[in-house]
Design a protein around this nucleic acid. Sequence first.
DNA 1: GGCCCTTTGAAGAAC
DNA 2: GTTCTTCAAAGGGCC
Length: 468
Amino acid sequence: MPQLGRDGDDLGANDELIAFKDEGEQEEKPNVSSERDLDDVKSSLVNESETTNSSDSEADRRPKPHPDVESRARHGQLFQEGPRKQHDTGLFQPSPYVGYPFFMISDLGNLCSPYLTNGALAPTGRTYLPFQWPLLDIPGRAAIRDSAAPTHLSNSVPVVQHPHMTHLRPLLSYSPEAFSPQRASPGFSPEPGKQLLPTSAPGMSRSPHTACYPMSPGGMTPIPHPLGWLLVSSGFSPRLVPPPQTSVPHPAIVPASVKQEPGPPSTSEHDQEEERKPHIKKPLNAFMLYMREERPKVVAQCKVKESATINQILGQRWHSLSKEEQAKYYDLARKERLLHSKLYPNWSARDNYVSRLTAEHTPSLLNTQHHILTWLMSASPASSLDSPATPTTALASPAGPAQLQPLSLTTKPPRITHSVGRNAVTPGPPTPSSTDTPTSSPHTASSRSSPQPLSHPFFHPPPTSSHR
DNA sequence: GGCCCTTTGAAGAAC
DNA sequence: GTTCTTCAAAGGGCC
């Protein structure tokens, strides 16, 4: 389980700094040490409780980026990037994440504050909260749903259209704007001083990322966002805002077609049906959060659309980030895990393993449904969502998450055996969570294949190997 | 249509 | 305690 019960810990507040050097120095030995230090720092960021740094750092085990890749990347064969980090020059640009809501929160115990903070969020720093109200069919939903640009959430509560209702997505959304505005200026480049594109470059619209913990695509009928986007602004006033204009329907919101086959499905069809059913996805890790934000920039800058290539670029840029920059993502990821664990206290990552359980059979999801439903019903149904007594604001209150315990769910229900798969689980008491205690990095030279040369045509022929 | 690719990190299983 | 595997996002490529 994520590091619950560790409220108040410093979020990666580490005074250790990493000195980044110009690209040309990266192949020198001192920089190897720096890279190792970075890995150590990253480990410490992930696990603040790790007070004693082991010399056997993750960097000792993690394979170094393929020199060919780095070399080519350094020489800018793809991005035509100029000199990298120039923090010691006047060209250094402030971090684009200065205004990230998380870092305006002093009370880290308020796990939901990042998403529902009533702090003075600038209009560009809004937090969108896609919230899927479960199992409630309350008049007025259609009016809200159909509203072209609803601006105020009335006393109406929408209903999930999916008959199973299993989809609960009251989850945080790292709105592009939440990451951005002043922070992530359109022309932001991980390589300060080398503006690859004009700051007003078109095509750099923010990614229309919507839900953060969407159920897997395909398990739902298209759901026009029931509540639209809950814009959390100041004064505990959740507002409905329309999705981003450039938004492409999120696959989780508008999933793949769900074939409504008449009659009872056969066994195989039943399996397929179950495969399509929604599940709670893993919270995004730091790198995933970074990728989600930076991907549009890379696409715009490099004119590359292949995700494999983009991810390679992002991986390199990730390593080139300063400790402070990475810390923000580690911090964000940790909060996301915390919130995820709050929302889905009984969820386990193994639920999503191949042959994952369906929503109907997943105790965690069942509990979550009941959990949130009970919470919703316990909230003041007659009050406006503008009222602090509403679920949304209750969630926003420091005590909100704790109040989400109407059920006795202090212990995990017995796991249901996975029917198939190499990771089949047998019923029994759950093993102690490894996340409660510091863990070493799972990445090893054998588990993580060395980065292959970029497959982009600008590079060499694509690799043929894969770690999968 | 669905899997592959490609990245890092987290979590859990396996040893 | 260590190692290994899976999954999370993304979308073009490929079969």
